[in-house]
Amino acid sequence: MKNMTCIVCPKGCSLQIEEKESGFEVRGALCPRGERYALQEMTDPRRTLQTTIRTAIPGCRRAAVRTSKEVPLGEIFSYMDAIKGVILEEKKECGSVLARGLCGSDVDLILTERLY
């Protein structure tokens, strides 16, 4: 049996996962998202990633970004390295795609702030 905290919403349910012949059995989830999270976590844990990048815009030192999808937890530092190479050259709308296919995956980099 494995215990974990569901991180999908602030309730933070404590989940118990047991491996049965029929597959994993999840207990403790207040909603179906918790069960989905636990199954994903047992087979291929993934996380959203947010950080900042450099910009060439005067008066704006960093711009906030996130990945368009969750990335494998074990590869988070490779994604950080890939994102470090991206520089925002000019003002864009919040939500714009700044880079495609990070680390050879189908994950894009999204601008998450309004630039003034």
Binding site: C9, P10, A64
Partner: peptide, 18 residues
Amino acid sequence: IHDGFGLVKFNEKLTGPE
């Protein structure tokens, strides 16, 4: 800049600036 904002109000996982 991290996410987790708006889960209750918008049922979406937004970052603070979003």
